[in-house]
Design a binder for these strands. Structure first.
Lengths: 147, 147
DNA sequence: ACCGTTATTCTGAGTCGCTCACAATAAGAC
DNA sequence: GTCTTATTGTGAGCGACTCAGAATAACGGT
């Protein structure tokens, strides 16, 4: 447990669902000389130890969070990219009973809900045709992962 | 509807869950001069039209399949990387009722079941400690996406 | 059939996110 | 306080994909 690891862990703890690149900037507040590669290594190590969980949505760098051991899921706003944690819907192991597993023994199910978050929905109501480009262009006050 | 697009479509149809790179080689049986970039463009176009569906598991290039309109899911063997289609378990829209959506209106749920397929399970039974490295190293007789 | 317009494909370079090999450094054990 | 091992830092490199722009091919009208 080095100071770099603790710094990365607290950075992720404070900024859930952050990509590695953001973690670097957060950690550099404390350790200005830490390198990008070290952060990648530390993130991978902590993920192996299951102190962190890595979440890889499409078209996005991998995001890290500290809720690692419980098997929760994620809701992803397709407009602004916001991500929220979602607990299992149906009991403990929700989607763990697929209809036909082709002989596979299932370990876990990763669920990604795609939807539109409240703020994006209200800002789209005024617009005649919603402009998905605005989402990627300007993450205004709250960045993609800062909420 | 050009011959390139038809060739790509049939290639994906014949080789479900194939990455773009493999599609290139398949298509080149018919159109030896097609370029990698064209295949990428065609795959993106066909995905937009919803003639294809793009599936992006972690640590793997994007895979394409022709079952595009139905919202089915995938089971992924964590040892050999084999992928099987899985229909919805609980009714029509299985995991579409998360416990707390944080104000998001959910459009769809993508589910990835992680497990171990039958052949990997039987080959691991002999081994004292299962060696996950072998998985990435040698996809033995059946390649990662050829099954 | 010919021509023009638009969509599709090709060429070649470039980007992003991440990984690798290896040297330098720091942390814990004796 | 040294020694050994784990952790960081350095710098290059890779895979998968994207982009800008030129060349080509597919329709639609005459």
């Amino acid at each position: 447990m080095t100071k770099q690891r603790i710094a990365v862990l607290t950075a992720v703890h404070r900024h859930q669902h952050s990509p590695a690149e953001n973690i670097v900037t957060y950690v550099r507040d404390e350790l200005p000389n830490i390198t990008v590669q070290s952060v990648y290594v530390v993130l991978a190590d902590l993920t192996d130890i299951e102190l962190l969980r890595k979440f890889q949505p499409p078209n996005t760098p991998a995001l890290y969070e500290t809720r690692a051991s419980d098997n929760h899921h994620h809701a992803l706003c397709v407009v602004c990219g916001r991500i929220e944690d979602v607990d299992c819907a149906i009991g403990e192991a929700p989607c763990l009973t697929p209809s036909e597993t082709h002989g596979m023994s299932i370990i876990a199910a990763d669920v990604v809900y795609r939807g539109i978050c409240q703020s994006c929905r209200s800002s789209e109501e005024g617009t005649g045709s919603p402009d998905p480009h605005a989402a990627h262009a300007a993450p205004t006050s709250s960045g993609l992962t800062a909420h």
